[in-house]
Write a protein that binds this DNA or RNA. Structure first.
Length: 440
RNA sequence: CGGGGCAUAGCGCAGUCUGGUAGCGCACCUGCUUUGGGAGCAGGGGGUCGCAAGUUCGAAUCUUGCUGCCCCGACCA
């Protein structure tokens, strides 16, 4: 993409409503535009990041064996009356009456819809296990939306739902998601720590929040330092095999949010392993048995011919929230520092002297080669001054910058800069290209 | 939902206390000079001062009501 033909409204000063760093940087970098409290337009740059995160989430869900579908944003109140949640949910649910006076709602989650889909088609234990997921916009009419994308009212969520014949199968389904989540966050450049979560009135031990550490996190968290460096399974992990060693390696170490915190257990750790920090919740998984299958009649015939309600679990990742979370975890004074996996463009090329033939030619060569290599470059071909271009490129945080100017070209070199480290080196065009396109 | 704050040009702000018909920086447009870390000079465009009533000869400024947004707390991907 050539910047002169793109839509990237960069702001020098952040609007005053933005307080936390990720919100400020997203507004300044022209990624989002607030339309209402907790409701945002995703501008082109923000949309590119959202799509990249979404795709990584999707790949890891698929790898674990979950199957994607797409459920509607508008749901019928009748389904929610079946589960008993229509009255229970409260004001967070946005309720709408259509032209025929039918009660509708903007889905805050999709247990009811997915259970309805399941009961319509699945009749036999032989069709299980099954895990259905979708990546869809949700709406929760939060009392106090805040922190930009961290707590919006309209947000993009991946929500998966598992169906099993027995508790043993449900645990297996839970473990698959547990491992898929570890892999997902790892690929996003984040260190996420699973923490035991309150299961509420449903009970059961199977509930974890995935938390990333960031000073601006919403909740206080406590954990064993060893959790920060535990190995995460590779892409070759066998999801049909025994995942409990992996899960146990995480769950056997102390980790809790403040509401689940056990001071005594925490203090039993050696002092140097105690981590007390702030955290951002980026995922939540739990197993809830027959809470929905029972009242909604989602049953399968067992081998003996008797019908039994299925055991369910649900697994959420806040996809749009992750944009904010990644920025909270990865930025400096100059702006965002994108992990390579989610960067909106792979490489930024700065043309310091648009209109000068040698510089233009070098930029065109780089641009063409990077496009061919699939690196999706952004070429700043505008006539802004060098300082402004450097500042903008640092702000939007692309992993690599190639700076092309007449002085360097006179010596046959361009400057290659790594955004994360600030490291700069003077290289020939070919060497810079090779460096940027080599496999990480 | 309790507590606090803000609303003046696209963004950041001054002006409000003490009423006299709106200003600064950035951004934007034109021209010239400039060009390796947010350029300089000159000229220019853009605002029903959140909305509505009221007080007054006169309201951004005073009064009342409303709306929107932000922050702290309780709750959530």
């Amino acid at each position: 993409m050539r910047l002169s033909r793109y839509f990237l409204p960069i702001l020098k000063e952040a609007p005053k409503e933005a307080e936390i760093v990720s919100h400020r940087l997203m507004l300044r970098a022209g990624m989002i535009r607030q339309q209402n409290a907790g409701i945002y337009t995703f501008l082109p740059l923000g949309l590119k990041v959202l799509k990249k995160i979404e795709e990584i989430v999707r790949e890891e869900q698929n790898r674990s064996g979950a199957v994607e579908l797409l459920m509607p944003t508008m749901q019928s109140a009748d389904l929610w009356r079946e589960s008993g949640r229509y009255d229970a949910y409260g004001k967070e649910m946005l309720r709408i009456v259509d032209r025929h006076e039918r009660d509708m709602l903007f889905g805050p989650t999709a247990e009811e819809v997915v259970t309805d889909v399941f009961r319509t088609y699945v009749r036999s234990y032989r069709d299980l296990p099954l895990n259905l997921y979708n990546i869809q916009w949700k709406f929760r009419d939060e009392v106090r939306p805040r922190f930009g994308l961290m707590r919006g009212r309209e947000f993009l969520m991946k929500d998966a739902y598992s169906f099993d014949v027995d508790q043993e199968g449900a645990i297996r389904a839970y473990y698959k998601m547990f491992v898929a989540y570890l892999r997902t966050y790892k690929r996003l450049g984040l260190t996420a720590i699973p923490m035991r979560a309150d299961t509420g009135p449903i009970g059961g031990k199977l509930s974890h929040e995935f938390i990333i550490l960031a000073s601006t996190g919403e909740s206080a968290v406590f954990c064993d330092k060893e959790l920060l460096d535990l190995p995460v399974p590779g892409a070759d992990v066998d999801f049909d095999g025994d995942l409990s060693p992996v899960v146990d390696s995480f769950t056997s170490r102390y980790a809790a949010t403040d509401e689940m915190h056990d001071e005594a257990a925490f203090n039993a750790l050696p002092a140097e392993r105690r981590v007390a920090a702030r955290g951002i919740e980026v995922g939540h998984i739990f197993s809830f048995g027959t809470k929905y299958s029972e009242p909604m009649g989602a049953k399968v015939a067992m081998a003996d011919g008797v019908e039994k309600p299925v055991i369910m679990g649900s697994y959420g990742i806040g996809v749009s929230r992750l944009i904010g979370a990644i920025i909270e975890a990865s930025h400096d004074d100059a702006g965002i520092i994108w992990p390579d996996s989610v960067a909106p463009f792979g490489v930024g090329i700065i043309n310091l002297r648009p209109g000068e033939p040698a510089v233009e030619a070098a930029c065109d060569t780089l641009y063409g080669a990077l496009v061919a290599a699939g690196k999706d470059p952004l070429l700043d071909d505008t006539d802004a001054r060098p300082g402004a271009k450097f500042a903008s490129m640092d702000l939007i945080g692309l992993p690599w910058q190639i700076i092309v100017g007449p002085k360097g070209l006179a010596d046959g070199v361009v400057e290659l800069k790594r955004r994360a480290t600030g490291e700069k080196q003077l290289l020939s065009l070919e060497a810079a290209l090779a460096r940027v396109t080599e496999k990480a």
